[in-house]
Design a protein around this nucleic acid. Structure first.
Lengths: 210, 210
DNA sequence: ACGGTAACGGACGCCCCCGTCCGCTTAGGT
DNA sequence: ACCTAAGCGGACGGGGGCGTCCGTTACCGT
């Protein structure tokens, strides 16, 4: 159930290769980020470069298909958070889970923060953003979320989380977990909180592959 | 007063070139990070590649010399923070200032977080780390800094701050400022703070130029 | 003014990545 | 079993970064 929306009329061996390419891409992207050479993915998948390019003419397409289920996981997390009767607890859960997801998958993080790849996602993204915004509003109204929180703060935290790199995945996840904990503390309303500097519009900025 | 520790016996034109190279390197590193090609630095400095390589055989050496005064600025900030009679205010100041410094200079951030370049710095680094540790301890004893704060949290924040990228420097600084504000809120002791996940040993990890 | 030498920079060979073409292989319908 | 077209991958030309060599230039001491 990885990607079954488009390529239905493929020969069986072609389909196999396609799957192997996606597996290889996922493995390499996760470990090393999006900058791995296309050739390396082809090599790991056991196919020639031409096959890779035939199936995925641009790296963007490959990335989009490779991370389709990660995106769904992301959406599932948000849905789960929104379903929680306690909006603050739901928001905390979203922050923790998404930070961990990003900590485990470097490539997905990069893809996620660089104006998402494919076209069909955009709709889902809009929806998800709106859902989170609603959740945050409810958490604010309920009290535990500081009133001067804005959605860009969440993006800020995700971008920041991306900056955390460690030698091992285990360390990475641990560091990311603590970071999420700190972020949550920062977002929690507190009677004596200082007035916090103004937020910046971030939207989508990252230089992709610089 | 950029770098005057080693190359005293240079011919005047060579010295000029050296300075122009360092200027070019600083400009490019700051704007684009450490991954700019050596050639580009040479081009911008108006010299041939050979001259650049003759003066700075490795990129590390170039980086080390280019960011010498940034490092001093860093140390000055720490000293200033330590000098503050109120340790918490001093610590806040250090966080804010260093985050801003990093926000303004992408290359310095990368260099700073990748097991600092040159050899002579190491000593200064040790000293600075100790100074900050002392400051944090005093802030803890005085009350405003949460007791479960550890030095790695500061590294965590700096790494995280590195992850924040924006289109313009202005936006970048603004985002970084808000981030520093949030970090400070997270570090502030609060009666009802949750127990925070365990810290991870980070020390120096970043994959340099991946 | 002039010689010696420090310093210069264009040019070279190397390697890696990119995206494409084309002759061979093989799946799968009949 | 056979035939056709879908699919394959090795090989190619292009581009860019790297680090070095060597013939030329220009400082600087006398």
């Amino acid at each position: 159930m990885v990607t079954d929306h488009l390529p239905h009329k493929l020969r069986s061996d072609a389909m196999d290769n396609r799957d192997r390419i996606l597996d290889a891409a996922r493995a390499l992207f996760s470990a090393d980020g999006l900058d791995v050479p296309m050739r390396e993915i082809a090599r790991r998948a056991g196919v020639g470069p031409a096959t890779l390019y035939r199936r995925f003419p641009t790296k963007q397409m490959l990335v989009a298909d490779a991370f389709a289920d990660q995106l769904n996981a992301c959406r599932a997390i948000v849905d789960e958070g929104c379903a929680d009767p306690d909006p603050w607890r739901g928001l905390c859960l979203v922050i923790e889970k998404i930070c961990e997801l990003h900590a485990r998958d470097r490539g997905f993080t990069e893809a996620f923060l660089s104006t998402l790849p494919g076209a069909p996602d955009v709709a889902g993204r809009e929806y998800t953003v709106k859902a989170v915004a609603g959740l945050a509003q409810r958490a604010k109204d309920a009290g535990p979320l500081r009133p001067d929180f804005v959605l860009d703060d969440l993006i800020l935290v995700l971008m920041a989380n991306k900056g955390i790199h460690a030698t091992s995945t285990a360390t990475q996840v641990m560091a990311s977990r603590r970071f999420a904990g700190l972020a949550i503390q920062a977002f929690e309303a507190c009677p004596h909180h200082a007035p916090l500097p103004p937020a910046a519009r971030l939207a989508s900025a990252a230089p992709a592959s610089a």
